[in-house]
Simulated assay, not measured.
Amino acid sequence: MLKVLGASAVSLGAAGGSRAQTFPSQPIKLIIAFPAGGPTDITMRVLAENAGKILGQTVVVENRPGAGGTLPATALQNAQPDGYTIGQTPLGVFRLPYTTKINWDPVKDLTYLLCVTGYSFGIVVPAESPLQSWTHFVAWAKANPGRLTYGSTGQLTSPHLTMEDIARRVGIKLNHVPYRGSAQLMPALLGGEIMAAADSTGFAPHVQAGKLKVLNTWGAKRLPTFPNVPTLKELGIDIVQTSPYGLAAPKGMNPKLVKTLHDAFKKAMEMPNHKEALAKFDQELIYMSSAQYSKFAEETFKKEKAIIESLGLAKAT
C-alpha cells in the first residue's frame, strides 16, 4: 500500500510540475483601476497585448474604476494565486488601511510582480478661464474661500491628496469633486461642471486642441510636451509627485509563476510600442523587480500614513 501511495504522490507531483511548466494554458485577466478610454487604460492595453504575445495567451483587460484606484487589489484578495488574475496597484492601495476599514494588509496580502511606470500630473483649466496662470488661480481662491471647484480622478487618489497638500501649503481652501478616472473627469471640466482639474497628462490632447490650459506640472523637471509650463518646485512649492504603479497578484503565488509573469511583463513594457504609448502621456518606464517592488510597497505604506495624517484625512479609530 505504501508503495502504491508513494507512486501516486510522485505521479501527482509530476502532474503539478507539468501544469506549472505549461503556464499559461488559458487567458490571463488583468484588472486595472481606471475607466476605459483614459491614459491608464490606453497604455495598459498595449502592455497587455504585448505580454499576451510573449506568453502565448490573451491577457484580457478588465476595468474596475472607483474607490481611489484600489478595486483591483481588493479583487485579488478573493482570487486564486494561480497566475490567471493579476491587477494594477496604484499608490492608493497603500493608503487604504488609513482611510477605511479593511480586513487585509496591502504589504503582506499581495504578491508584487513588478513596477511598470508612473504618472505625470498637472493642473488644468478651460482655455477661456480667467485663471490663466497659477498666480491668478491662487489669488481667486484666496478671495473666494471654498468656491473654486476642482476635479480629480477619485477620492484619496494621488491627484486629490497632492492638490490638498498644495492648497494647504499656499493657504487656500478648495472644493474637491471626485470622478472615476480621467475618462470622466475631462468631459466634466470641458462641460463646465468644475473650474479646474488635477489629473495625469490624459489632458494632453485637449491642451493640444486648444481647449485646456496647463497651469503647472508636478514632476522634478518640466515635461517635454509642455516645456513652457512651470513645475511646482519652480513655483516655490516643494512637491514632486509621479505616483509609480505596477502589477500584483494574489498572496501565496508560486515563485515560478511570479518569475514567468515578471519576465513576460518586463519584456512587454520595454517594447517600442508600449514606450510610445507612455510617451503620449509624458510617462516613462519605472522598472522595479519583484523584490524591489515589494520593498517599495513596504516603504510607501509607511510614508502614506504620514501624508494622510498630515492632511487630517485618517479614519477615526
Rank of each mutant, 00 (worst) to 15 (best):
P224M: 02
L76Y: 01
V138S: 08
N175H: 14
K108A: 15
T22D: 15
V93T: 12
V10F: 13
G202L: 03
L110S: 09
T217C: 07
G38S: 11
H176D: 10
V124P: 03
V138R: 05
V46S: 07
A9H: 11
I42Q: 02
Q283C: 14
S133I: 09
S200M: 14
V59Y: 00
I307W: 11
V93R: 05
G122S: 06
S289F: 10
W140F: 08
Y119M: 09
Y84D: 03
N63R: 08
V229Q: 14
A204W: 10
P187S: 03
K213E: 09
E284P: 01
L185S: 07
T111A: 04
L212P: 08
P65D: 00
T85H: 00
L148P: 10
V177L: 09
L113N: 08
I42V: 11
V170G: 04
T201L: 14
A306I: 06
P250Q: 07
I308A: 03
K303Q: 12
D199R: 10
A316I: 12
L212I: 05
G6K: 12
L174M: 09
I237D: 01
A249I: 08
V60D: 02
K53C: 04
T43I: 09
Y287H: 08
S8C: 15
L156I: 09
S129K: 13
I123M: 13
L257W: 02
I194S: 06
